[in-house]
Design a binder for these strands. Structure first.
Length: 416
DNA sequence: TCTGGGGTCCTAGGACCC
DNA sequence: TCTGGGGTCCTAGGACCC
């Protein structure tokens, strides 16, 4: 349900990781800094002035900004401060939809009688975030999520923009198309070829032409968004659809050892997280990226959900093997990925249940499978107590490839 | 600018069932 | 034996987001 007034807030912490680093170490304040190493995960606004952007190769960033300082990530602090800011928002409404570590939508329509106008609430959220967490946050307010999100981007850094319902198109149409949700590099380029660079120009294109240019799905969606028709409501719950891991390898000669070792490591990461969530999944997908960056995927849907490391590694291996067999001319791979989807709930309780022979066909947890699963659980337990590195399948062997440290994984802000 | 990691959603063809 | 149409699942690829 979309509200009549501008009651949707989009709050987005500014240059989040970089701001946290500057918060933790005052000597970094006012400095051009980047979080990351080989790749920039986040850049301070001082660095952005030199053109440094999230997702940029570290070397390129240094070229643009020679005095750029790379700082290590305090990942636990990012999580803690991100949570703290979300908690501030929840003081204003339970209708908070967190969409990443550092941004969220709020529907404050039901809170106006308690706290005042949406603008008043946004001012207070910004004040408290600065005071209690020490961080700058930008807020966009509008009638729809899409518009609120765009408004917060325009408000950055450290700003607040309210788009009143009777000024929506005046606000939206002069803006560049790439501010829209769903317009990435490919779509932007496709539009630019037609001379379309603003949202207003996009809105002026007949629906049929847009669908012809971008395909039915994307064309229809962007067409309606350009006219500010966004029916999405705030969703406070989130179901994980898949769990995956990937590893960039540089350029590596294809070998059985490399693939087995890498898959073992990736399967271990994925399976550990699945078990921590008490989930298992039926569909296993692998991705193999060759030189020249083109990649292929192979997937299989199993008769039963799995969450044990060795089984996942084995299924992944056979999938990668089929992918490689289909591309016999390739000599080098640059990335391996594995993910598990079609997730189902799998309570840890299952471990305690006696193995029922009658069920053997339905579940992978035959005697051997259950034993493997039990072993994985105990490995998880040891890691919880003594740290990840204490028990590993292949992480030590892999570290010599110069892979990104595990703490760097899963955490990408890429704030452009 | 040759580049890291974890995700979501959409499309399209084919298999299979009714 | 051949024919139609609809629905759902599986697989592969692509674009996008943070």
């Amino acid at each position: 349900m979309v509200a009549d007034g501008a009651t949707i807030l989009h709050a987005d912490l500014d240059a989040f990781y970089a701001s946290v680093e500057q918060l933790l170490d005052p000597s970094l304040r006012g400095q051009a800094i980047a979080v990351g190493g080989g790749v920039v995960l986040a850049a301070s606004y001082e660095a952005k002035r030199y053109g440094v952007r999230g997702g940029m190769a570290g070397r390129r960033a240094r070229e643009l900004c020679p005095h750029l300082r790379f700082v290590g990530g305090h990942f636990a602090e990012y999580q803690r401060l991100g949570d703290q800011v979300i908690d501030i928002m929840r003081d204003f409404t339970p209708l908070v939809e967190r969409i990443s570590i550092d941004e969220a939508f709020l529907d404050v329509a039901g809170s106006i009688h308690l706290f005042g106008s949406p603008r008043t609430m946004a001012i207070e959220i910004r004040r408290r975030t600065r005071l209690e967490a020490g961080l700058p946050v930008s807020v966009g307010i509008a009638r729809t999520k899409h518009l609120a999100k765009i408004a917060s981007q325009v408000a950055k850094p450290d700003g607040l923009i309210v788009v009143e319902p009777d000024h929506e198109l005046d606000f939206l149409h002069p803006l560049p198309v790439e501010l829209m949700w769903g317009v990435g590099p490919v779509t932007q380029a496709r539009l630019a070829e037609q001379g379309i660079t603003t949202i207003g120009e996009l809105a002026a294109i007949p629906g049929r032409s847009l669908e012809h240019l971008l395909g039915r799905g994307v064309g229809t969606k962007l067409g309606s968004l350009a006219w500010n028709q966004d029916p999405r409501a705030i969703e406070t719950t989130h179901r994980a659809g898949s769990v995956g891991a990937q590893s960039a390898l540089g350029r590596k000669e294809i070998s059985t050892e490399l693939i087995r070792m890498t898959l073992r490591h990736l399967a271990d990461r994925v399976a550990t997280r699945l078990r921590a969530k008490e989930r298992a999944g039926k569909t296993v997908t692998v991705r193999v990226r060759f030189a020249e960056m083109q990649s292929v995927t192979r997937s299989i849907t199993l008769p039963a959900a799995i969450s044990a490391t060795p089984i996942l590694a084995e299924v992944g291996y056979s999938l990668v093997t089929t992918a490689l067999r289909d591309h016999p001319q390739e000599r080098v791979i640059t990335l391996l990925a594995i993910s598990v989807s079609h997730l189902v709930f799998e309570a840890a309780l299952q471990l305690e249940l006696p193995i029922d022979i009658g069920e053997e066909k339905q579940r992978p947890g035959t005697t051997a499978g259950a034993a493997r699963w039990a072993l994985d659980r105990s490995v998880d337990g040891v890691r919880e107590r003594f740290g990840r590195k204490s028990v590993g399948y292949a992480s030590v062997a892999l570290s010599e490839t110069g892979a990104v440290p595990d703490e760097f994984r899963e955490l990408a802000e890429k704030d452009g």
